[in-house]
């Protein structure tokens, strides 16, 4: 009988669901704009721009919910990286995912109330949420108001650098999303991790 742990309080589930919707909208419209062609319109350009702008603004607001939540509740502790021995822990988890999992070995870092994320999860979530997402929305806002930022602060050339960073980080977040969704299928059952994000209960092996 699988053990159930209440790991995802309501606000985390709400933030996660909204984040998923906004990120998906941003990726789809972002790719559509990046590869726009007159003869091939994946999403009509002006619609893609509007959706991208609105979703970006809402993502920023939702990020503030995440930051506030992590600041005032115990959820923040899951994102505190311990640098000592980090590389060894990451390697151990990586070996489990590439070899151990096929040998039906026990996970090296099982989910507990104190350790919601395994080292690889923790590292990538911290990178995504505390580095990549802030970069992408800051550069996104800068592209929304280039007149203010670039002519007054950085000069016109800053626009290129900003655009480049926004697009590259956008790609990395897309890769993160694909891998994240795939790894969610590695749970007690194929769909148990997806269920967790609705019910709040984590189901262990």
């Amino acid at each position: 009988m699988a053990e159930k742990l209440y790991l995802y309080p309501k606000w985390v589930r709400l933030w996660h669901a909204l984040n998923a919707i906004f990120i998906l909208l941003l990726i789809i419209t972002g790719i559509s704009m990046q590869f726009s062609k007159p003869e091939f319109g994946f999403i009509r350009f002006d619609i893609a721009v509007s959706i991208h702008n609105i979703a970006g603004m809402l993502l920023t607001a939702n990020y503030l919910l995440f930051l506030t939540g992590n600041f005032f509740t115990s959820n923040g502790k899951y994102y505190k990286l311990t640098l000592k021995g980090l590389f060894q822990r990451l390697t151990k988890q990586f070996i489990y995912y590439t070899i151990g999992i096929f040998r039906h070995e026990k996970p090296p870092f099982p989910v507990t109330k104190e350790r919601k994320f395994n080292p690889l999860q923790q590292f990538t979530y911290v990178a995504a949420m505390y580095v990549l997402v802030p970069i992408v929305f800051i550069t996104g806002w800068a592209l929304l108001y280039p007149e203010v930022l670039f002519t007054k602060v950085l000069g016109a050339s800053g626009l290129k650098v900003n655009d480049f960073i926004h697009v590259i980080v956008g790609f990395f977040l897309s890769f993160f999303l694909f891998v994240h969704v795939y790894f969610c299928t590695i749970g007690a059952t194929f769909v148990s991790n997806f269920k967790s994000m609705i019910t709040g209960y984590h189901e262990s092996h």
């Binding site: 480049f164 790609f171 897309s174 694909f178």
Partner: peptide, 27 residues
């Protein structure tokens, strides 16, 4: 200026497609 969709980098385009390919292949 910055014209979305018109200012594109060829190498970035190729690189992103390659990386998407690797991610999907890995999965």
């Amino acid at each position: 200026s910055y014209v979305i969709g018109a200012n594109r980098n060829y190498y970035l385009g190729i690189l992103s497609l390659l990386m998407f390919g690797f991610v999907f292949a890995g999965i």
